[in-house]
Design a protein around this nucleic acid. Structure first.
Lengths: 339, 339
DNA sequence: GTGAAAGCGCTAACAG
DNA sequence: CTGTTAGCGCTTTCAC
C-alpha cells in the first residue's frame, strides 16, 4: 500500500504538494500537478482514510439508529437516507437498537469515539438528558421522531393532520361509529395523531367513544385479534383506523374468513402504504408517509450541522402525509353476480 | 475531548501505562490500573477511533454491498448481518449499488482507502477480475451470490434443490403442466434453480415445456401480466412457480378478479416467504430462504479472513431452503356452502 | 512493572 | 508556487 510519501518521491516533489493536488488546492503549477497525478496513477495510490480522519477530525460517516431494519417503513427510510448521503459523499453506519435504551446509548457513543460525524435517530428510547450529553461531541438529528423541548433539529410528519384527514374521510363516507387503534407507543407523534383524529370527530359532532379504542396493535396477528373483539361487540363500529397496514391486512383477512364484506360491513384504513395494501382484496386505503422528503431533509440538516459545528438549535421540519383512498373504504355499486 | 495524554497526566503515569490498561495488557500493577481507571472515568475519556485505526491498521467496520435496501429479502439480510456483526463488535456500512457496475466498484474501493476491514457482497455486477484486484487490499465474501471460479468464500442457498423441491411438490399434487418464471437474472444461482426444476419434471416423465417459461418477472405488476398471458393460452398450465412472492401475489390477485379459483384452476408457488404470503387468500406456498444462517456464516467467515489476513481461498458454504406448503397449492375439500 | 520515543499517513501553518 | 516541520491520538518496541 503506497503512501503520500511514495508519491512525493516518485514525482520528485514534497508531500505537501501531493497533498495539495489531492485536495484541489490552488497555487499548484499545472506542470507539477500532472507529475503528481501520473505518480499517483502509477502507484495506484489511494489516500488512507484513517489518517485523514485523524488529521481532519472528521470521518465522512453518519450513524443511523433504527429500531428494526426489516420493518418496511424503516427499510424504505434507510434506502432514502443512503441515497441522499451518497450524493454528499457520506457513508452510513446502520445501528439496530431493537428498542433497547442501552444499545441506543452505546451507539450514541460513536460520537464520542469520533467514529462518526453525526447521528440520525429514527426513534428515541432515552431521555433528553442522554441526548443532550452527547451533543457535546457532535450533532444529533431526529428523523421520524419528536422529543419535547429538545434543542436539536427534528424532522417529522404532521401526525395530527394525518389523524384528522383519516377521520374526515371516514366521516364523509357516512360513518360515525369509528374505531381507533394505537400501537402502544406513547410518543408525541402518536398522541398528536389521536388528537387529530378526535378533533375531526368532535367537529362533526360525533365525539370519540373509548369503547372503540384498541391499543398495542402492530402485527398481522394483532389485526386478526382486533377483528374478534369487534365481532363480539353488541354495537360494533362501521369503520376502523388501524394505525398500521399489517394490522389492517390481518383484520381484513380475518373478517373475510368470517364472511364480512369490507368495506360494506366495516371500512378499514391502514398506515404506511406498504406493498400489501394494493394486493389485498379489497385494496387498502392508507396513509402515505413522505419518506423521501424526510430522508433528504435529515441528511441536508445533519450535513449543515457538521459543517457549522453548532450542534444545539431548535429546528422543526414538518412534512405532510397523503391519504391514498382505495377500496377498503369506498363502497362501490355491486356488480351483478352471474349465477 | 480528552486524550490518552490527559489521562496519563491526571493519573501521574505515562501514556504507555494508560494504553496498557485500555487494552487489557498484562504486567500492570493493580494499584496503577485503578489509578488509570479513575482518571479515565473522571475525564470521561473515550479512545479516538481514527487514531486507533491508523495505528492498528484496522477499523472494525465491514461494508455490505446491496443492490436495493428496501427489497424485503435484502432488508432481512441486512438485519441479520447487523445482528451478527454487532455480537463481534463490528459496525456495518451499508452501500446501495442499485445494480450499477460503477457504484459497486467505487464501494469496493473502500478496501483500498482502508475505510473498512472487509466487504460482503450480496450481489455482483462486475467481473471476477475486478473483485480479484481488490483482494489485494482486504477480504471479500459473497453472501447470496455465486461467481464461477472465484477463490473467495461464497455463502449461498442450494437453488438447484429449491427448484427441485418445488417441482416435486407440484408433481405430487398431480400437476404435470407446470409453468416456470424467472426474474431475468442469468446468475449461476438462477440457472441452478431452473435446472433443479427441470430435473424433477424430467424424472417424472413430464419434460419442461418452453411454452410455459416466462421471463423477466419480479414485481406485482409482472404477476398480473403473466396471468393475462396464461389466460390467453389455449391449453394453460395447471400450476406455476413464480420465482417470487410479489409475482405470485400479483398473479393471484388478478386471477381472482377474473373468477379463477386458486389453487383449483391454477396452483401457485412463490419465493422468499414475504409477509404477504400469509395474508393473501389463499395463503401462498413459498420457499423460505435461510437468511439468518447465511448472515451468520458470512460474518463468521469474513471475521476469520480479517483475522488471518489471508484473503484468497476457495470456500463454499451451502445452505438449504425450506418449502412452506400453504393453501395456494393444496386443494382442500370444499366447505358446504350455506345458502 | 513502567516509561521514552518513534511512527501509523495525512494536512496546515509558516517560511521562503 | 513549493518545501519544512509539527502534530492529530494511539500503540509498541526497546530500555530500564
Amino acid at each position: 500500500m503506497s503512501t503520500i510519501e511514495d508519491v512525493a518521491k516518485l514525482a520528485g516533489l514534497s508531500r505537501t504538494t501531493v497533498s495539495r493536488v489531492l485536495n484541489d488546492h490552488p497555487y499548484v503549477s499545472d506542470e507539477k500537478k500532472k507529475l503528481v497525478q501520473q505518480a499517483m496513477k502509477h502507484l495506484g495510490y489511494v489516500p488512507n482514510s484513517a489518517a485523514r480522519s485523524l488529521r481532519n477530525q472528521k470521518t465522512g460517516i453518519i450513524a443511523v439508529l433504527i429500531p428494526k431494519i426489516s420493518t418496511p417503513f424503516f427499510s424504505q427510510l434507510i434506502e432514502r437516507l443512503e441515497m441522499a448521503a451518497s450524493v454528499k459523499n457520506y457513508q452510513l453506519i446502520i445501528c439496530q437498537t431493537q428498542f433497547s435504551k442501552h444499545k441506543e446509548r452505546s451507539y450514541l457513543d460513536l460520537l464520542k469515539t469520533k467514529q462518526v460525524d453525526g447521528v440520525i435517530m429514527t426513534s428515541c428510547e432515552n431521555d433528553w438528558s442522554v441526548i443532550d450529553e452527547h451533543l457535546n461531541y457532535g450533532p444529533i438529528v431526529l428523523c421520524n421522531e419528536i422529543l419535547e423541548d429538545g434543542n436539536i433539529p427534528m424532522i417529522y410528519m404532521d401526525q395530527f393532520c394525518s389523524g384528522y384527514e383519516v377521520a374526515k374521510h371516514l366521516l364523509e363516507q357516512g360513518h360515525s361509529r369509528i374505531a381507533y387503534c394505537s400501537n402502544g407507543s406513547q410518543s408525541i407523534g402518536m398522541k398528536a395523531r389521536k388528537r387529530g383524529f378526535e378533533a375531526a370527530l368532535a367537529e362533526a359532532g360525533h365525539p370519540f367513544d373509548d369503547e372503540f379504542y384498541f391499543q398495542h396493535l402492530s402485527s398481522i396477528t394483532d389485526g386478526k385479534q382486533v377483528f374478534q373483539q369487534i365481532k363480539g361487540l353488541t354495537n360494533p363500529p362501521t369503520a376502523i383506523f388501524t394505525g398500521g397496514d399489517s394490522v389492517a391486512a390481518g383484520l381484513i383477512s380475518e373478517a373475510k374468513k368470517h364472511g364480512w364484506n369490507i368495506p360494506v360491513d366495516l371500512a378499514v384504513v391502514g398506515f404506511d402504504n406498504m406493498e400489501i395494501t394494493e394486493l389485498m382484496d379489497p385494496m387498502i386505503t392508507t396513509v402515505i408517509q413522505p419518506v423521501e422528503e424526510m430522508a433528504q431533509k435529515a441528511i441536508e440538516v445533519i450535513c449543515e450541522k457538521i459543517h457549522k459545528k453548532q450542534y444545539r438549535s431548535y429546528e422543526r421540519h414538518e412534512f405532510s402525509s397523503k391519504l391514498a383512498i382505495r377500496e377498503s373504504t369506498m363502497i362501490k355499486p355491486r356488480l351483478v353476480a352471474t349465477s
